[in-house]
Design a binder for these strands. Structure first.
Length: 447
RNA sequence: GUGGUUAUAGCUCAGUAGGUUAGAGCACCAGAUUGUGGUUCUGGGGGUCGCCGGUUCAAAUCCGGUUAGCCACCCCA
């Protein structure tokens, strides 16, 4: 058979894994610094947990796991006869792969509510799955790095999450724009335009402003059944950049004013914070997921054409559907795959080799091979990443292997070396070679 | 779910008026070079031309179908 992997999935070679770990390690370090604790949840959740949380589109993109055993025995006969796949699913599948980390987290919080002390700050770095058509920067299996706080309405957390974004991307040396907005502001626009019921329709349209322009937005608003007078009001408000002016515009919208006050509170917390990246209020920012209710965030990489590389927001009642109402949460997510692609494109991955091989031993004959093996042990005991070519074959072959592995140093062992106790340490970059005792070599490479 | 595009050696790709044995570069193996690599030279192994069917004396090439990848839309990380 011809080997293959499922569409939208990838293998990662050693070089790629090292780079991915660089991202995960950076993100994790910052999460820990801000006082977040790690949890992990199963790759599979019950479909009851997952369905209905991501809208109709989300349900379609859920991976379902076929029931074990004789799953046809309990299959919905009526659905089978009418070939109704959607109806059939519930009778042959009771589990699915998680679609994101937020919903499983909400489930986790509800199940463990008596053991957790609130506010509970958790981070989670795990893969998620979506049965989407793959394309650039978009896969069916990908990692998310989530940080969320549940059990507090304090807007200090909004400010904190913005700082986390800022700090992570500063450490990755990747310039970004951290955009933020508030769902209540969007609701305010809808109210001011007299279309509170069409808020979702409206936000989907204005979210595309930077992509399709104001004329495109107007067209889309019209197509989504919004009246001309309302569109007029909406576009006028979208031109306003100043929070005070917006507050005036929301004179008749209580929710809109609330949103502005929240944004001002977040900005107040950030007063005096020295940001490394641009932090920008963006009234057109909408975000897809419908469960956000307060502040929303999105991160855009500069100097590169890529969708958002992170996003998140405040959700007032996420645990409500699992039977725990009134618990507020706020969190953000890092899109590790896209960050990877961006760092790669901008050549921002560090070249240090702390996690790779530092020295390769090679021997000229069987006796020297044993001698080298012994020296290798001392090297490793000293904490230096070291390896030995497995056979004393001709040197050209061993050297070639050293090149391919990108080893900075090799140590040659033969009769002369064994007799003198001084091994030949060769710098593969410069070609320089010197005779040193094993202790001296450890001192040189350990530094 | 909609549309576009591609499929030939391990990898990147050439190869159409259908016509002997399907090529190149890289990679791999051996030698030039029995204690010194990244350069060079010589030789070598490796392909049911995605799969199924059709047209034809003859198909990688033309036709139909099918599968998979990639890209865009929807949506999203």
């Amino acid at each position: 058979m011809k080997p293959s992997i499922p569409k939208g999935t990838r293998d990662f070679n050693p070089e790629q894994v090292l780079k991915r770990n660089y991202i995960f390690d950076t993100v994790r370090r910052v999460f820990i610094k801000y006082g977040f604790l790690p949890i992990e949840t199963p790759v599979m959740e019950t479909l009851d947990t997952l369905t209905g949380k991501y809208g109709e589109e989300g349900d379609r993109l859920l991976f379902k796991v076929l029931n074990n055993g004789d799953f046809m025995a309990d299959a919905d006969q009526a659905a089978l006869e009418t070939r109704d796949s959607r109806k059939l699913v519930s009778s042959i599948s009771k589990r699915g792969l998680r679609y994101d980390l937020t919903v499983p987290f909400a489930r986790f919080v509800v199940m463990n509510q008596n053991e957790l002390s609130f506010p509970f700050k958790r981070y989670q770095i795990q893969p998620v799955w979506r049965a989407d058509r793959p394309q650039k920067g978009r896969y069916q299996e990908f990692y998310q790095c989530d940080v969320d706080v549940v059990g507090s309405e304090s807007l200090a957390y909004e400010a904190e999450l913005i700082q986390i974004y800022d700090e992570v991307f500063a450490q990755l040396r990747l310039p970004v724009i951290v955009k933020y907005n508030n769902r209540k502001v969007l609701a305010g626009i809808a109210e001011a335009a007299g279309i509170p019921d069409l808020m979702v329709e409206m936000t989907v349209a204005i979210d595309k402003l930077d992509k399709i322009g104001m004329d495109g937005v107007k067209k889309e608003l019209t197509e989504r059944g919004i009246a001309e007078t309302s569109i007029e009001t909406i576009t006028q408000i979208l031109e306003i950049k100043d929070l005070d002016a917006l507050e005036t515009a929301f004179a008749k919208s209580e929710v809109g004013q609330k949103g502005i006050q929240e944004l001002k509170a977040v900005q107040a917390y950030l007063q005096g914070y020295q940001a490394s990246n641009e932090l920008r209020f963006d009234i057109t920012l909408a975000r897809g997921l419908s469960y956000y209710t307060g502040c929303i965030f999105e991160v855009q990489a500069k100097n590169v054409a890529m969708g958002s590389i992170g996003g998140g927001g405040r959700y007032d009642n996420l645990t409500g559907v699992f039977g725990l109402p009134g618990v507020s949460g706020v969190g953000v997510s890092f899109g590790a795959e896209r960050i990877y692609d961006v760092l790669e494109e901008l050549k921002l991955f560090p070249t240090d080799q702390a996690n790779t091989l530092k020295v390769l031993f090679m021997a000229f004959d069987a006796k020297a091979h044993q001698y080298a093996f012994n020296a290798l042990g001392k090297m490793r005991a000293a904490g230096i990443n070291a390896d030995l070519y497995p056979d004393p074959v001709k040197l050209a072959k061993q050297m070639k292997y050293a090149n391919n592995r990108n080893v900075p140093y090799v140590v040659l062992v033969g009769d002369n070396e064994m007799a003198s106790g001084k091994l030949a340490l060769k710098n593969m970059q410069t070609g320089e070679q010197q005779l040193l005792s094993i202790e001296e070599i450890i001192a040189v490479l350990g530094a």
